[in-house]
Design a protein around this nucleic acid. Structure first.
Lengths: 222, 222
DNA sequence: GACGTTTTCGACCGTTAGGCGAAAACCTGG
DNA sequence: CCAGGTTTTCGCCTAACGGTCGAAAACGTC
């Protein structure tokens, strides 16, 4: 029961880690988690464990990643870990305990056990799902400009994306919706940016697949 | 530790189930599986469990599906199950124990516990991955005609796919390769069909994604 | 009012999938 | 051996989509 909680902070994708005080792997950084209780399923359990670190209401998305079960993944008796991906929207700055901090995923400190591999899996899952789902809603605030969204996607994916394409693709898939509002331009001027929101707060899959698409189910209009 | 082992048999997607002899859920049909041993990871464990039902060498693909952990999913003390998807190529007819049989996934008998939900997950995972990976190799024999492949995809997906498109898309993605051989037409005549094979026997992902594709990584040529 | 800045929008192009139909290559029956 | 039926294969056409560019819009400052 471990979670890689990701958030775009200061323009880069970061993961929440806590520093171990005791052996094994003292002083190394570790993903939050804990054991499974008696009357809860694994999703409820990881949310309960994460509640010790962040306000669970600030978690915009939680999903199973995979089971990590290599007998030697931790010293001593074998521990099977169900790993999760958690997401926090960028406009929130959760209060975290003293032993806990955010670290950019491409500059991790010394990590405990196999937690770096779990982080990699989480990054990969996030990047994939940003492409074929509306998972961006879990990274973004309720309202945002296209430039802000572009910055979020670029940080989460690790490379620049085009604002034009991002807006057109997400709109064409029916995921993005203008709120009608605008934001004032900065001190250097510029046209006021329009505000958008994601249509749905639940994860939706947009199948960009061809061979396997049922003939009736055509692409969703604008 | 449970596996939904799927195979296209007699033109329909079927799942391997065994009939429970004892309570709970006696006479209901159940997915094969068992407990995790001390010195193996979950992948090794499920392969060991499945070896009691089928020759493991006949399993062309095994992957994790998800953890099912609802406290009430089985009567009595809670059991956490890591579910797997297994695939068997269509040209193989495994010898199975007397209590075990194949059942079409869209006409399941009375199933035990939450195994029907696990089957649904397995079907969905297979259908999705057929679209954006080369997972078809795990359903097909080493060599096959396009019509045969079309039949496999249609059965696994649950709807008709076009042979023309199937060949072109898989070829364009660099997944399909002609062997040069042909098969003799049936008694009713017809042009001899060319034989093909999948280029790789390992799972490969073909990202048909746009917004999130790194600018350098262009589509793979023929 | 000119100029720089930022966002927005439309236009163009190459690629891909979906569909159709002709052509190819075989069979059987007369 | 030719006509007609069957099955596979291939090319063409079209629509949709993503990638890119550049112009236009809407603001600020000088």
């Amino acid at each position: 029961m471990l979670a890689a909680v990701l958030q775009v902070r200061a323009g880069s994708l970061q993961v929440m880690l806590w520093q171990r005080a005791r052996e094994p792997h003292a002083h190394r950084w570790s993903l939050p988690g804990g054991g499974l209780g008696g009357h809860e399923d694994v999703e409820a359990s990881i949310r309960r464990q994460l509640a010790e670190k962040v306000d669970v209401r600030q978690l915009s998305h939680v999903e199973q990643l995979a089971v990590f079960s290599n007998p030697t993944r931790v010293p001593g008796p074998r521990v099977v870990a169900t790993a999760f991906l958690g997401l926090v929207p960028s406009h929130i700055d959760p209060v975290v305990p003293a032993d806990t901090a955010w670290h950019p995923v491409d500059a991790l400190p010394a990590t405990a056990f196999d937690h770096e591999a779990i982080c990699r899996r989480a990054r990969h899952r996030l990047a994939s799902k940003l492409s074929y789902t509306n998972l961006g809603f879990a990274l973004a605030p309720p309202e945002f400009t296209i430039s802000a969204l572009r910055a979020l996607y670029s940080a989460a994916l690790g490379y620049q994306v085009s604002a034009t394409n991002l807006q057109r693709v997400l709109s064409r898939r029916g995921l993005l919706e203008p709120t009608g509002g605008t934001v004032q331009p900065g001190p250097s001027g510029g046209r006021p940016a329009a505000l958008f929101r994601f249509v749905s707060g639940e994860m939706r899959v947009t199948d960009p697949f061809a061979v396997l698409r049922p003939p009736s189910t055509r692409s969703l209009g604008s």
